[in-house]
Structure formats: structure tokens, C-alpha cells
Amino acid sequence: EVTIKANLIFANGSTQTAEFKGTFEKATSEAYAYADTLKKDNGEYTVDVADKGYTLNIKFAG
């Protein structure tokens, strides 16, 4: 089991951190699915992958 950390960075400057656990593939998939649910209210997003994929910096356009 691994932990994927998602740093969520919103257009208004606020930030939030979420963690997803499971296999690497499952946790990564859940992180992207979570970002997709936030897209409606926060706009499109870009992802900067860090720490060999264990950290995702997800920035929303607003």
C-alpha cells in the first residue's frame, strides 16, 4: 500500500491537501477522480507530478 499526496491549489490562492491510499494505480486514479469532481466549481486543472508520482500538485484555473 502506498499513499499519494495531492496538493490542491485553487485560483483564489487557498490550498488543501488530500491523501489517497491503496496500490499506486488505485490511489493515483482516486486522486485524479477527486480533482475531476472539483473541476465543476473550480475550473480546469493542471497537474505537476513530483516525488516520482507520489505527490501531485493540482492547480485549478478558477
Rank of each mutant, 00 (worst) to 15 (best):
E1C: 05
E1T: 06
E1Y: 06
E1L: 06
V2D: 06
V2W: 05
V2F: 06
V2N: 06
V2P: 04
T3C: 04
T3A: 08
T3D: 04
I4F: 02
I4T: 01
K5T: 13
K5L: 14
K5W: 12
A6G: 04
A6S: 07
A6C: 04
N7I: 15
L8P: 00
L8A: 05
L8D: 00
F10T: 03
F10K: 04
A11H: 15
A11Q: 15
A11G: 11
N12M: 07
N12R: 07
N12G: 08
G13E: 09
G13D: 07
S14A: 14
S14C: 05
S14Q: 15
Q16C: 05
Q16L: 13
T17R: 11
T17M: 12
T17L: 12
T17W: 13
A18E: 11
E19S: 12
E19M: 10
F20I: 03
F20Q: 01
F20P: 00
K21Y: 14
K21S: 15
K21W: 12
G22Y: 02
T23W: 06
T23H: 09
F24C: 04
F24K: 07
E25H: 05
E25N: 08
E25C: 06
E25F: 05
K26R: 05
K26H: 15
K26A: 15
A27N: 01
A27H: 00
T28E: 06
T28V: 11
T28M: 12
T28S: 10
S29G: 11
E30V: 06
E30A: 13
A31G: 03
Y32D: 01
A33W: 06
Y34E: 02
A35D: 00
A35K: 00
A35I: 11
D36Q: 07
D36H: 06
D36V: 04
D36A: 07
T37D: 09
L38Q: 10
L38M: 13
L38G: 02
L38S: 02
L38E: 03
L38A: 04
K39E: 06
K39N: 04
K39S: 07
K39I: 09
K40H: 14
K40A: 10
K40C: 06
K40G: 13
D41L: 12
G43S: 03
G43K: 02
E44N: 15
Y45C: 03
Y45N: 01
T46R: 09
T46K: 14
T46Q: 07
T46D: 08
V47W: 06
V47G: 02
D48S: 12
V49M: 13
V49E: 08
V49Y: 12
V49D: 04
D51G: 05
D51T: 03
D51H: 06
K52S: 15
K52C: 06
K52D: 11
K52W: 08
K52P: 04
G53A: 04
G53T: 02
G53Y: 03
Y54F: 14
Y54E: 06
Y54T: 07
T55R: 05
L56F: 04
L56K: 01
I58N: 00
I58Y: 06
I58K: 00
K59G: 05
K59N: 14
K59Y: 08
F60S: 00
F60C: 01
F60W: 05
A61H: 15
G62N: 12
G62M: 07
G62I: 07
